[in-house]
Simulated assay, not measured.
Amino acid sequence: MTALTLIRHATILLELAGQTFLVDPMLDDARSHDAVEGTSNPTRWPLVGLPTGAAEVVASATAVLITHTHVDHLDDTAIAFLRDRSVPVFCQPFDVAELTERGLPDVRPVDEVTHWRGVAIRRTGGQHGTGAQADLMGPVSGWLLTHGGQQVYVAGDTVWCDEVAAVLDVNQPQVVVVNAGEARMVTGDPITMGADDVFATCRYPGRRQVIAVHLEALNHCGLTRAELACDAAAAGLEVTIPRDGERVSLFQG
């Protein structure tokens, strides 16, 4: 079975081709971090704990995908567990030095595409915000995984942009995982997808299952699951919005 399990925030376990890909592991305890600098909500994060143990999450992975190295996508707890696992960690070329210095034993940069155990792993682009804000956030990537006729696109920390549209247009993935939550700094536009961005993904020509994650775990992500579900229903659009710990079957029709 091909399936996705949301752990928390952007951390997912993706089962494809008999492998389990761990994406962007944020495994620190709840309230471990001060509020994200430059945001208006002073609450410490993660706002919620893990639905299962961090060791169990890492142990289940046969490979790891890192979209970028912001702490809410790769934290110290994840690094500590991954140092003891001889699993490949696929990443942006710009992040190799940092990941190696942090002690990960098998770091594999992906420029465009690589192949591993029957899965084509393609790195995609994105925009972590708009204009100068996106420049400050640094380079981010997404991942397009292909096995046979199945394609899963994990867009990463990006707003709706030409790079996302290009993947949908050229590759036509059947499953798209988007980081919603509408994360915001004090000034500027959102730096992850809000409802309108999610709906643009749904409405783009073609047929796909859209799964929204990156919700209700960080202090500066204001869009809730309930709000997104309500807005999607009002717009007549179908968006899968899993709870933490929920496993979603993919390619079921």
Rank of each mutant, 00 (worst) to 15 (best):
A63K: 01
L6W: 03
T192R: 00
V198C: 06
L215F: 08
P242H: 02
D34C: 09
L50H: 02
A78S: 06
A166S: 15
G236T: 04
E56G: 06
E238S: 12
R225Q: 05
S86D: 12
S40Y: 10
A166G: 07
D24F: 06
H128Q: 03
V140A: 08
Q172C: 11
P25S: 07
A17Y: 08
L250P: 02
M193H: 00
T52C: 09
S60M: 14
H70T: 01
A180W: 01
A134M: 11
V87E: 01
A17S: 09
A59H: 07
H220F: 15
E37L: 11
D106F: 15
G131W: 07
E163M: 13
S249A: 14
M185Y: 14
I7N: 05
D196K: 07
C221V: 04
G236Q: 05
T130H: 07
R123W: 14
L27S: 04
L13N: 05
T124H: 12
E98C: 09
Q150Y: 10
L27T: 01
W143A: 06
R123F: 14
L16W: 08
A54Q: 01
C221P: 05
T100N: 09
A166H: 13
D95T: 11
Q151F: 12
L65E: 00
V175K: 00
G38N: 03
Q127R: 15
D231V: 10
V152P: 03
H115I: 13
R85K: 13
Q92K: 06
V159S: 01
P205Y: 03
P88G: 06
P46N: 05
A166D: 10
S40G: 08
T100S: 15
H9S: 09
V119M: 11
E98N: 07
A226N: 02
I211K: 04
T20L: 11
Q151W: 13
L218N: 01
E182C: 11
A217D: 00
L6H: 03
Q174R: 10
V178P: 04
L215K: 00
F21W: 15
A233R: 03
A155S: 01
V58N: 02
I12N: 00
W160D: 05
T100F: 14
L14A: 10
D231G: 10
T224M: 09
V248D: 00
A80N: 10
L74K: 02
S60E: 13
S32Y: 08
L250N: 04
Q174T: 02
P109L: 09
G53P: 03
H220G: 07
I79D: 00
R203D: 15
A10Q: 06
A229P: 02
H220V: 10
E15D: 15
P205L: 06
G138P: 12
E56C: 08
D197L: 09
H9N: 08
D84W: 13
N41V: 10
V57M: 06
H115M: 13
P42M: 05
A233I: 00
V23M: 10
I66K: 04
V57Y: 05
H9P: 01
E216N: 12
L215A: 00
I191H: 04
D135Q: 12
E98L: 15
Q209Y: 10
G103E: 02
